[in-house]
């Protein structure tokens, strides 16, 4: 879980959690702890006081790659339920603006509930389709945590139960390409975006990035993450991807003991 230091100091939150019998193990990521707790985190006082956000460690990685700074104007194009959005607002010390967008109204409800629970004041919530987000202003940084097949979550729970469901009819790479292209167009010159998914499927990762590199003058940037990672791949089952995809990072559950993730940093030239 992530400690939210908006209403209280990290020390106060840790003391409260320990007083409720929660065992905490620190991680390489600031404010993130692996926790041992009987039952759901929602039964804790700290949850109802808006002092914690239950979240996997890997979901911090796209935010750390984006590195939002105080004063930035940031867009989270697929924001709900708000874990990464609120993490960005916390890193920005609530200075600057985070625009949190999602296309599904039911998910917007979860997003606004989480923003309210954590007491954050610098987030604006919008309700647009990601690929049609209005081109009204240039953002400093944009997070595209795209809808994906979620293969990285297959190893969830102590028994590693599979969440795989067959028969998906949605063309996810087409949706992801549309969203990523629009995100790139929404960046100001010199701005940066992060494209992330929680899947291993190269079609949804390097394939989408290669599409963007073919359509726009984008630059893939390297990144030194706080968890063990592998390079992006440049070929899979006979399909070749842009060599710049090597600079992306793949996070595998057996190496990180968390959800699998793909993270790519992309810059728009000045």
């Amino acid at each position: 879980m992530r400690l939210v230091t908006v209403k209280a100091s990290g020390r106060q939150v840790l003391d409260l959690l320990r007083s409720e019998g929660v065992s905490l193990e620190s991680t390489p990521v600031k404010w993130f702890y692996r926790v041992g707790v009987a039952g759901a985190p929602g039964r804790l006082k700290a949850y109802h006081l808006g002092l914690i956000y239950p979240q996997t460690l890997a979901s911090a990685l796209p935010v750390l790659a984006l590195d939002p700074r105080p004063g930035d104007i940031v867009l989270d194009l697929c924001a709900a339920p708000g874990g990464k959005t609120t993490h960005m607002a916390q890193l920005m010390e609530e200075r600057g603006v985070v625009v949190a967008n999602d296309r599904k109204f039911a998910r917007i409800t979860a997003l606004t509930a989480n923003i309210k629970r954590l007491g954050l004041t610098n987030i604006l919530v919008t309700f647009y389709r990601g690929e049609r987000f209005p081109l009204e202003c240039g953002f400093d940084r944009i997070l595209v945590d795209a809808p994906c097949s979620g293969e990285g979550k297959y190893r969830v729970g102590e028994r590693g139960e599979m969440l795989f469901s067959r028969g998906r009819a949605t063309n996810l790479p087409a949706i992801q390409k549309g969203i990523l292209k629009r995100a790139f167009d929404l960046l100001r010159p010199g701005g940066e975006l992060v494209y992330s998914t929680c899947t291993f499927n190269p079609e949804e990762n390097e394939g989408v990035l290669t599409y963007l590199l073919g359509k726009r003058e984008a630059q893939v940037l390297g990144w030194d993450p706080p968890l063990p990672a592998c390079e992006g791949i440049t070929e899979f089952e006979g399909v070749k991807y842009d060599p710049a995809c090597r600079r992306c990072r793949r996070f595998y559950p057996h190496q990180t003991d968390t959800v699998g993730f793909f993270v790519a940093r992309v810059a728009k030239p000045r």
Partner: peptide
């Protein structure tokens, strides 16, 4: 609603906002 003041906020006036800051 209470919104943290930002010099860049006027840039966002044209968006349809569902919620601004904290109720």
């Amino acid at each position: 609603y209470m919104v943290r003041r930002s010099k860049k906020m006027p840039l966002l006036n044209r968006f349809r906002i569902q919620q601004a800051g904290l109720p």
